[in-house]
């Protein structure tokens, strides 16, 4: 049976993506740092869908763990591993991060540096095998910086650019790289925040992710209409954009 490794597996979107793969008869290797949640999640997916699930306690933000545990994890997954989905990310407290450097650093590390270091390891693994897919959750927030979440947004912009380059590099090895840019999703990341609209369910995003991985697409906005919303937002001239309260 094919298997998929999910990094940052305990978020609501990751759970839905894992369920979508399990529904399609894929075994799961779930990696995250929160052992208690991971155990519950692995048991749940196994009981619902009857596929083998394996919990791997791994802190993607710990460079040492990424260098030692992640390759071991990939090697242990063996030949059946078809791909990796990276769901690591945090909204953080943008407001606090203006003064609190530690929070700023945490936002950048979680959404960019940590992801990139982990994906480096994943990329080398798949490049050698000359097949597989690497799918990562970026965000529409990376398409244009705005005052309410530009730390998060700039990290996601960096991640999107990294994925672009990686896709270019791995093309020759036959490894696919898929960038997912979700809009607002109904998870704890957005729950209770004002000014959100068109909230999508994690399940809807998960179906879109599965479809994107199994189609030939490179960059996918989820739900689809965000591509057009972001197109409009990107077209606003900077001279006007800087005056807006967004």
């Amino acid at each position: 049976m094919p298997s998929v490794l999910i990094l940052g597996a305990t978020s609501a979107i990751a759970r839905a993506i894992a369920a979508e793969f399990a529904r399609h008869r894929s075994e799961l290797i779930l990696a995250a740092r929160d052992a208690e949640e991971l155990t519950a999640l692995a048991a749940d997916l196994n009981l619902r869908y009857g596929v083998k699930t394996q919990a791997q306690c791994l802190d993607v933000l710990d460079p040492a763990a990424v260098e030692t545990s992640l390759p071991a994890c990939l090697a242990a997954a063996g030949e059946t591993l078809t791909g990796v989905v990276l769901c690591v990310g945090t909204m953080g407290d943008e407001e606090a991060a203006r003064a609190n450097q530690a929070e700023a650093e945490r936002i950048l590390n979680t959404n960019f540096t940590g992801c990139v270091l982990a994906l480096n390891v994943v990329a080398n693994h798949f490049e050698k095998r000359k097949r597989g897919f690497i799918c990562a959750l970026s965000s529409v927030a990376g398409d244009r910086g705005r005052q309410s979440n530009y730390l998060y947004g700039s990290a996601k912009a960096g991640l999107s650019a990294y994925l672009q380059g990686l896709r270019n590099r791995l093309f020759r090895s036959g490894v696919r790289v898929i960038t997912i840019k979700p809009g607002f999703v109904d998870t704890s990341m957005t729950f209770g925040r004002p000014g959100l609209f068109l909230l999508a369910s994690p399940e809807a995003i998960a179906r879109g992710v599965y479809k994107a991985i199994n189609s030939g697409k490179d960059v996918v906005y989820l739900p689809w209409f965000w591509r057009w919303i972001m197109l409009v937002i990107r077209l606003v001239p900077e001279g006007i954009f800087k005056r807006l309260r967004l």
Binding site: T90, A96, E103, S188, M189, F191, G192
Partner: peptide, 10 residues
């Protein structure tokens, strides 16, 4: 810092 899950909606 916002702890996830502690946000509430009125």
């Amino acid at each position: 810092m916002i702890v996830s899950g502690i946000n509430s909606v009125t």
